[in-house]
Design a protein around this nucleic acid. Sequence first.
DNA 1: TAACAAAGTCGACTGCGGTCAATTTTTTTT
DNA 2: AAAAAAAATTGACCGCAGTCGACTTTGTTA
Lengths: 210, 210
Amino acid sequence: MAGLREQRKKRTRAAILEAALHLFSRQGYENTSINQMAKAAGIGKGTIYSYFQSKSEIFLAFCEDQFVFIDRELSEKSRRGKPLIEQLLTLFMGEFQFVSRNKEFGRILMRETVFPKELTVERSQELDNKYIELMVPLFKQAQKRGELRTDLELILVVGHFYGLYIMTVSGWYMGRLLTEEDVAMVLESLFLQALEGLSPAGTKKAMHNE
Amino acid sequence: MAGLREQRKKRTRAAILEAALHLFSRQGYENTSINQMAKAAGIGKGTIYSYFQSKSEIFLAFCEDQFVFIDRELSEKSRRGKPLIEQLLTLFMGEFQFVSRNKEFGRILMRETVFPKELTVERSQELDNKYIELMVPLFKQAQKRGELRTDLELILVVGHFYGLYIMTVSGWYMGRLLTEEDVAMVLESLFLQALEGLSPAGTKKAMHNE
DNA sequence: TAACAAAGTCGACTGCGGTCAATTTTTTTT
DNA sequence: AAAAAAAATTGACCGCAGTCGACTTTGTTA
């Protein structure tokens, strides 16, 4: 009895997400109106706005779930001592598959997480933090194996690879990369560039070290 | 007489852009309605849509102009034999200043150019191409000076640095980077990482070369 | 220059996301 | 159990972006 209210709220929230998931996957995000979702969830339009701040938030809500799930799963799978670059490719390509499964979904997700509005900044930061938590261990292991410099701020390393991932996804949205293979190839090339360095061999930390 | 129609169209188009520029800078993008712009330009609402496909297109139209202008100017200024990294920082920080001058403008621009909708893909590609044209010469010169590997596809190098730039701008929108100095510092760190490589010294092309 | 075609213009209209004052439902107090 | 307070729900309502068929202007043909 303590949480009668709470329980109802949870059920309503779940009902909204379920209705949304159903409608989104049947007719896409843009073609689904808040009213439709409300009707499908058996509630009034206004009620939705006491559970979510905006339409895109509804979408992001289960995007994030699925996203984090994928990441967890992939990172488990790729944890066993493979080279860093393979681990990263597995991780990011898994994510890309989720994005590319529905271009429209993915675009909103990427736009909202990479360039968030003030309203959704917090949400995006949360997602971002999960990312960092996820990747930092990978990098630490790679450092132990001698695959990664130890004099770097790991958060910048995360940013580096994530930036290259965003760039690649952008290339896909721009129509420069058409197939999943294209994306995988470019991503790998960029990652290799990052690891090997863009300046000619020997130019680099030699300056500092020798 | 041949181009009476054409002339009028040009004037109307210019009038729309002028009205838009005025209204946008006075009350922001979101708070300016198509109707307002139409009124200010002395034409009907529907007419606007025979000149531009959507509201955001109007915005992008003069964004691009200004953008390319800035880039041209900056690349001139930074062309004189400075190290590659300085040239790149000058270029991207100039661009960031344009973006950060109005956060809201910038967000739309970034969203639309990095993750374009089918409708605006062409426009984004054009902008992208101008970018490439702009940066490739910088890289070629850097290669001559021995600052950049010569075994790379330059378009991937452009992508690499642009990806890092996007990542940094994202950090600003996410509230992780607060001042222009923060942005400049992170951008420089990432660029250095890219040039020096993330793997430990010697690991890199040594494998191939030695 | 009269008749016709083509290009350009228009604003009433549609459906949307989001708001809010009024109302209903639940919890707390007496 | 009644009254009062708090929380949750609602749909009419707002201003908006974008559409469309009716209309006007320009160019062409005979």
